[in-house]
């Protein structure tokens, strides 16, 4: 009698943990399917002809239904290569500026004691709470005055300003945790303050820079608002805007619509596949604890 509760408890324990694991996997797998399903449906159907899309939307493209007609329409009608180029230029240059200028500012705020330090830290971080879009009216006027409307430069400036606060915030928090000794050591070794930043601090914050890069990249690449307002000319359209307008014109040509969506999705997925490990380790390293 005395030992029965023991065995039963352990048995119950085992079956319970098995049951728990099954539940955990069921929920996670279920949600993963929900997360991916729409994307997969679109990509699959983009490789079908019109009939395939409508009769069997959930089937894989087969010999009957396989077709690249959507892609050929998109590539011949839209200037997607140009749009890609625009998006790429805007995103890469903005990211570069956000990371470089943000890291420089974060370094100054975390490393040096000076009178305005506290005020400037708060000032830089204000932008996290206030979406830059609220200033759209004035941004447009400013761009008109600077003669930058319908240029990629206007987008680059706005995105850099938009990305800086969160970059400065995350990097400052992280740089504060860097050992002071190592910078002092570099000082004793005779490095100038600039070289300390480039040769000692930057290599140390590289993983966090990657996280900031991914986080800043998503809203820039995907933004619709500012391209629509500041740079909607044909020569300066970004992919997001291009796709949006293309779809607007081709609502009846479903293969073209699906193909253009797929074209817009794929590069992001590829980039994500490359960076995802870094992204997650960056987040979990505590840099984004807030």
């Amino acid at each position: 009698m005395t030992d029965t509760p023991d065995t039963s408890r352990s048995r119950r324990g085992r079956s319970k943990s098995w049951g728990t694991a099954a539940t955990v996997h069921a929920v996670l797998l279920g949600y993963t399917i929900i997360a991916l399903f729409p994307v997969i449906v679109v990509i699959l159907n983009s490789f079908k002809n019109r009939r395939g899309i409508f009769t069997e939307p959930l089937a894989l493209p087969g010999p009957e239904t396989f077709s690249l007609e959507g892609y050929s329409t998109v590539l011949s009608e839209g200037s997607f290569l140009l749009y890609y180029g625009n998006s790429l230029i805007v995103t890469v240059v903005s990211l570069f500026l956000i990371l470089l200028l943000g890291a420089m500012a974060a370094h100054a705020l975390s490393e040096y004691r000076f009178r305005l330090n506290g005020i400037l830290s708060v000032y830089m971080i204000l932008g996290i709470m206030v979406p830059i879009r609220l200033g759209t009216v004035a941004i447009l006027q400013l761009m008109v005055q600077l003669d930058l409307v319908n240029t990629l430069v206007s987008l680059i400036f706005v995105y850099t300003a938009q990305g800086l606060p969160i970059a400065v915030f995350i990097l400052t928090e992280f740089m504060r945790t860097l050992s002071r000794d190592i910078k002092d050591c570099a000082r004793v070794d005779g490095l100038s303050e600039y070289r300390i930043f480039f040769e000692v601090v930057l290599p140390l914050v590289r993983p966090v820079l990657a996280t900031v890069a991914v986080f800043s990249m998503i809203p820039i690449w995907n933004d619709l608002w500012f391209p629509l307002i500041l740079a909607s000319s044909d020569a300066t359209k970004t992919v997001t805007l291009g796709v949006q307008q293309f779809i607007g014109q081709y609502t009846v040509n479903w293969s073209a619509v699906l193909a253009s969506l797929s074209i817009a999705i794929l590069p992001v997925l590829v980039l994500y596949a490359i960076f995802s490990r870094q992204l997650i380790s960056g987040i979990t390293s505590g840099a984004v604890k807030g």
Binding site: L97, L101, G102, M104, A105, H107, A108, L109, Y112, F114, L120, Y123, M124, L126, G127, V130, I132, L134, G135, T136, V137, A138, I139, Q141, L142, F157, V158, T160, A161, Q162, L164, P165, V168, S192, E193, Y194, F197
Partner: peptide, 26 residues
């Protein structure tokens, strides 16, 4: 202290001109 200015000024300028000023102007 020159280096502090060099580190801070670019970020502050872009952020002020294209984010804070437009907000205040709005």
């Amino acid at each position: 202290t020159a280096h502090i200015v060099v580190f801070l000024a670019p970020a502050l300028l872009i952020y002020t001109i294209f984010s804070i000023y437009p907000l205040v102007e709005s």
